[in-house]
């Protein structure tokens, strides 16, 4: 799952000479972007035409023009911004909390055997609990305002990051660690100069998984009761029979989720330029 976006962008620069000869799916990124749009565009235009021609009413499944018009109206009234900001703030706080705890505890259990034997079994057991099962408890403990929402998102983000980081540390190549030993690196220097860069690729994959789960859980959190946020738009659209509003919120989620992932990929790409991976030839 780490490959999609980074692969597409890398191919611009590196695979350029090969694009002429390769099959079209491996060709230049413009052609690929067009290919990716064919199916959704055909469906959208087809449905739009069907409704316009009177073949379907489009009340429960509104045509794209109506969804976009709703989104535009929400944007024009400033409502959309309020909801997007609320949702993004929740994802960002939950992600920051869950990811930092995941990195720290993953690093601790990955490097210290005592901590591993002490903590890891408990975390693995907790991980087996579906995160949504905590919702009633969080509401009892933390009320119904922002705190339980952020905590729920943090729980969702924590586990993939924790598992990813501690697993990555456990699988650092002994041979590279020996290079550090030969040059007599201190424990902190070994961590900084060998372990940290070695686990970076897996950590970034874990963060991307965590971010995706953050968006999954923000919907759950907002469905359980919120007065603003894209999840609120979903609930509101259901209660007042406005499918175009639900679809507009879903569209906004898709754009936000993809944008957040892209930001993460773009920010971390300079850290991973050294990787010798197969994504450019697959």
């Amino acid at each position: 799952m780490a490959s999609g976006l980074a692969g597409a962008a890398e191919a611009d620069t590196r695979d350029a000479p090969a694009s002429g000869s390769g099959p079209i799916v491996r060709g230049d990124s413009a052609a690929r972007a067009l290919l990716a749009l064919v199916l959704p565009l055909c469906l959208a235009i087809g449905w739009e035409l069907a409704v316009r021609a009177g073949l379907a009413q489009g009340r429960l499944v509104p045509p794209p023009s109506r969804v976009l018009a709703t989104l535009a109206a929400l944007a024009a009234s400033g409502e959309l911004r309020v909801h997007v900001e609320a949702t993004l703030l929740r994802v960002a706080s939950g992600f920051a909390l869950g990811a930092s705890l995941g990195i720290v505890l993953g690093a601790v259990t990955g490097t210290l055997p005592l901590a591993r034997h002490l903590l890891d079994p408990a975390f693995q057991a907790l991980r087996a609990v579906p995160s949504l099962a905590w919702v009633p408890l969080f509401i009892l403990w933390l009320g119904i305002l922002e705190t339980p929402k952020v905590v729920l998102i943090a729980v969702g983000v924590f586990f993939p990051v924790y598992v990813g980081v501690s697993g990555a540390i456990a699988s650092v190549d002994r041979k590279l660690v020996e290079v550090g030993r030969i040059f007599r690196l201190s424990k902190p220097a070994l961590a900084r100069r060998i372990l940290l860069p070695a686990i970076l690729p897996a950590t970034i994959v874990a963060l991307r998984t965590g971010l995706g789960l953050g968006f999954l859980f923000v919907v759950a959190a907002e469905l359980m009761g919120a007065s603003e946020g894209l999840g609120y738009l979903l609930v509101d659209g259901q209660q007042f029979g406005k499918p175009e509003q639900i679809l507009a919120a879903i569209l906004a989620f898709a754009i936000l989720g993809k944008a957040a992932d892209t930001v993460l990929v773009v920010l971390t790409r300079p850290l991973l330029r050294w990787q010798d991976v197969a994504r450019d030839i697959l």
């Binding site: 041979k175 030969i182 040059f183 100069r193 060998i194 860069p197 070695a198 050294w274």
Partner: peptide, 30 residues
């Protein structure tokens, strides 16, 4: 234990993949 006066070249190059060639060569000169 590893001694500053003793260097080792392994059977495989064991260069650190995230460092450039020059950074790898300078690894022990921190």
């Amino acid at each position: 234990r590893p001694h500053p006066g003793v260097g080792l070249v392994f059977q495989e190059p064991r260069l650190l993949p995230w460092l450039t060639v020059a950074q790898n060569v300078g690894f022990g000169l921190a």
